[in-house]
Amino acid sequence: MQLSILLTQNHRLLSVAAIIDVFETTNRFLEEEKLDRQFDIQFIGLNPELPSSFSQYPYRVLSEVSEKSDLIFIPAFRSDDMAQTIQENAEFIGFLHRQFQMGANLISLCTGSFLLAAGGLLNGRQATTHIEAVDAFAQLFPSVQLQPHAIITQSENIYTSGGATSSFHMKLLLIQQHCGREMAVRIAKTFAIDMDRNNQLYFEHFKPSITNDDALVRTVQLTINKRFGEIKNVEEALDEVPSSRRNIIRRFKQATGMTPIRYLQKTKIEAAKGMLETTHKDMVEVMVASGYNDMKNFRLLFKNLTGLTPKEYRDKFGIGSMMTARPASVAHE
């Protein structure tokens, strides 16, 4: 089975290395069981030569490739300027369309989904990406049915995965499809991957940039960032801006990719997350400090934005979650 990795401009090296590591380990396990290797890895890129770090693998220049690959991986990008990154990798888009028509499986990892979306391959389809890139993605590609919570999406022969370690779940899915459940479980254990993850929302760190292009929007952002704990509803922030509500909301969404109320909600919940991570405050104190006065509403919104209840979030990321395991007790005579 031909597994091709696109060596895109500004790719994240760790994303590429993880693909190689997981599928080469699978090949090794198959050989140990006296079975044939399943994955023949090659690179496809724009530059004349392959970087020396991958020199043991076959390399094809994009313009010379006409035959179908079985699996084509688009690794994560390391650049935050996705518009520029897409432009630098535009030559891959026609190739991806041709491969899709031939029946190749197109697999994007993390922010690699931006390249698929830029080519229109995700229009009308469900897709996911890195949780911290979802707002930018939604703004650039409104025709895509973005699933911010999803670890993996599949539509026909197009796959997308969430960010960072979520991409390992994509690899496990493909290994299960092509090598069976037993091998997928063995790989999961080898790489210490929890197979039951079904949500990536709780990995988001909401730290939006303050716009310099619109003074009205900037004022609303700064007001929310400074006074979120005392603001009970978004009208209190909008009242300080000399413009109509409708105009502010339109401009705010254009500048930030979200409505003012969503910005306020995410700011409050981000503050709550910080307290759950770093303090021993009880849940009522956390709720009040983040600007809420109704526990039921606080819990509902928290779960809506993170996929976890406040207690589940503290159990996962709170001060006690990083405690090292205590050694087993030793019996003494």
Rank of each mutant, 00 (worst) to 15 (best):
K189R: 15
S209R: 13
E204W: 01
I152G: 00
I175T: 04
R186H: 12
L173G: 01
M183D: 06
E156A: 13
Q177G: 08
L172Y: 00
F168Q: 02
S209F: 08
P208G: 10
Q154R: 12
F206S: 08
N157R: 11
I152S: 00
A150C: 07
R181P: 02
P148H: 01
L173I: 05
F191H: 06
A184G: 12
A188M: 08
F206C: 10
G162Q: 03
G162E: 02
Q177D: 12
Q177E: 14
Y202A: 15
I175P: 01
L172K: 00
G162M: 00
V185I: 12
I175D: 01
E156F: 08
A192Y: 11
S167P: 00
T153F: 05
Y159V: 12
S155G: 09
T190M: 14
V185P: 00
H169Q: 08
H169F: 00
I152L: 15
T165G: 02
L201T: 07
Q147K: 15
S161P: 02
Q154Y: 06
A184N: 08
C179Y: 04
N157K: 11
S167G: 13
F206P: 07
R186S: 10
F206D: 11
P148Q: 04
A188R: 08
F191D: 00
S166N: 03
G180I: 10
K207F: 04
S155V: 12
I187S: 05
A184L: 09
L174S: 05
S209H: 12
L173A: 10
E156M: 06
Q200E: 07
T165F: 05
F168H: 03
E204G: 08
E156S: 11
H205N: 15
T165S: 13
I158M: 04
T190D: 11
L173T: 04
I175M: 05
K189T: 13
H169E: 03
Y159R: 02
C179P: 01
M183Q: 15
P208W: 10
S209W: 05
A188E: 08
A188N: 09
V185H: 08
I152Q: 03
S155L: 06
A192R: 10
H169G: 00
N199M: 09
T165P: 02
A150E: 02
T153L: 08
Q176M: 10
I152F: 06
